[in-house]
Deep mutational scan, measured.
Amino acid sequence: MKVIFLKDVKGKGKKGEIKNVADGYARNFLFKQGLAIEATPANLKALE
Results as ranks from 00 to 15, higher is better:
residue 41 P to G: 08
residue 19 K to G: 07
residue 1 M to T: 12
residue 33 Q to M: 15
residue 39 A to W: 10
residue 20 N to H: 14
residue 1 M to W: 07
residue 24 G to S: 15
residue 39 A to H: 06
residue 38 E to V: 06
residue 4 I to P: 00
residue 7 K to P: 00
residue 22 A to V: 09
residue 6 L to F: 03
residue 10 K to Q: 14
residue 32 K to P: 15
residue 12 K to A: 15
residue 35 L to A: 06
residue 46 A to M: 14
residue 39 A to Q: 02
residue 34 G to M: 09
residue 35 L to D: 03
residue 40 T to R: 03
residue 35 L to S: 04
residue 32 K to V: 14
residue 40 T to P: 03
residue 22 A to I: 08
residue 42 A to P: 08
residue 23 D to M: 15
residue 19 K to H: 11
residue 12 K to Q: 15
residue 37 I to W: 06
residue 7 K to F: 14
residue 46 A to E: 10
residue 25 Y to W: 10
residue 35 L to F: 11
residue 2 K to M: 15
residue 27 R to T: 09
residue 2 K to R: 15
residue 30 L to W: 03
residue 13 G to M: 04
residue 5 F to R: 00
residue 9 V to E: 01
residue 21 V to N: 00
residue 6 L to K: 02
residue 15 K to D: 02
residue 25 Y to H: 06
residue 9 V to Q: 01
residue 12 K to P: 01
residue 26 A to I: 10
residue 14 K to F: 13
residue 5 F to W: 02
residue 45 K to V: 11
residue 31 F to G: 01
residue 12 K to H: 15
residue 29 F to W: 13
residue 25 Y to I: 07
residue 11 G to Q: 05
residue 31 F to Q: 03
residue 39 A to V: 04
residue 1 M to E: 04
residue 9 V to W: 05
residue 33 Q to Y: 15
residue 44 L to T: 05
residue 9 V to P: 01
residue 29 F to R: 07
residue 3 V to Y: 00
residue 19 K to S: 08
residue 41 P to T: 09
residue 7 K to G: 06
residue 21 V to M: 10
residue 15 K to P: 05
residue 23 D to V: 15
residue 7 K to T: 12
residue 36 A to H: 00
residue 32 K to N: 09
residue 46 A to H: 11
residue 37 I to S: 03
residue 46 A to W: 15
residue 8 D to R: 07
residue 18 I to P: 01
residue 2 K to P: 08
residue 19 K to F: 06
residue 21 V to L: 06
residue 17 E to V: 04
residue 29 F to E: 08
residue 22 A to G: 10
residue 27 R to Q: 09
residue 4 I to W: 03
residue 41 P to R: 09
residue 2 K to N: 11
residue 29 F to L: 08
residue 16 G to S: 04
residue 41 P to F: 09
residue 3 V to N: 00
residue 19 K to T: 08
residue 33 Q to K: 14
residue 37 I to A: 07
residue 23 D to P: 15
residue 28 N to M: 12
residue 13 G to I: 06
residue 24 G to A: 15
residue 41 P to N: 09
residue 27 R to G: 03
residue 24 G to E: 15
residue 4 I to F: 08
residue 27 R to S: 06
residue 26 A to F: 14
residue 18 I to R: 02
residue 16 G to E: 02
residue 10 K to S: 11
residue 47 L to K: 05
residue 11 G to Y: 08
residue 46 A to D: 10
residue 35 L to Q: 04
residue 2 K to W: 15
residue 40 T to I: 05
residue 5 F to T: 00
residue 46 A to Q: 12
residue 16 G to K: 02
residue 16 G to R: 03
residue 16 G to V: 01
residue 44 L to E: 05
residue 15 K to E: 07
residue 33 Q to E: 11
residue 35 L to Y: 11
residue 28 N to K: 14
residue 32 K to R: 12
residue 36 A to L: 02
residue 3 V to I: 10
residue 2 K to G: 05
residue 20 N to V: 15
residue 25 Y to M: 06
residue 44 L to R: 06
residue 23 D to F: 14
residue 11 G to S: 07
residue 8 D to S: 10
residue 13 G to Y: 13
residue 37 I to P: 00
residue 2 K to D: 10
residue 30 L to D: 01
residue 41 P to S: 10
residue 15 K to N: 04
residue 18 I to A: 03
residue 20 N to R: 13
residue 22 A to T: 12
residue 18 I to W: 03
residue 41 P to H: 10
residue 45 K to A: 14
residue 27 R to W: 10
residue 11 G to V: 01
residue 3 V to A: 01
residue 22 A to F: 10
residue 38 E to W: 07
residue 4 I to Y: 09
residue 43 N to P: 02
residue 40 T to L: 04
residue 19 K to D: 03
residue 37 I to L: 10
residue 31 F to I: 12
residue 23 D to I: 15
residue 37 I to T: 05
residue 15 K to A: 13
residue 24 G to N: 14
residue 28 N to H: 13
residue 36 A to S: 02
residue 45 K to I: 12
residue 11 G to E: 05
residue 14 K to W: 09
residue 26 A to Y: 13
residue 43 N to W: 05
residue 18 I to M: 06
residue 26 A to K: 03
residue 22 A to K: 12
residue 5 F to P: 00
residue 31 F to N: 01
residue 25 Y to F: 12
residue 39 A to P: 02
residue 34 G to Q: 09
residue 7 K to L: 10
residue 25 Y to G: 04
residue 4 I to L: 10
residue 27 R to A: 07
residue 11 G to T: 05
residue 28 N to Y: 13
residue 36 A to I: 07
residue 31 F to T: 04
residue 32 K to W: 08
residue 30 L to M: 04
residue 37 I to H: 04
residue 40 T to G: 03
residue 1 M to I: 15
residue 15 K to V: 09
residue 14 K to E: 08
residue 3 V to M: 04
residue 17 E to N: 04
residue 38 E to L: 09
residue 8 D to Q: 05
residue 8 D to T: 12
residue 33 Q to P: 01
residue 24 G to W: 15
residue 25 Y to P: 05
residue 44 L to M: 11
residue 42 A to G: 11
residue 45 K to S: 12
residue 24 G to K: 12
residue 1 M to A: 06
residue 47 L to H: 10
residue 23 D to A: 15
residue 44 L to P: 02
residue 26 A to L: 12
residue 20 N to G: 07
residue 48 E to D: 12
residue 6 L to A: 02
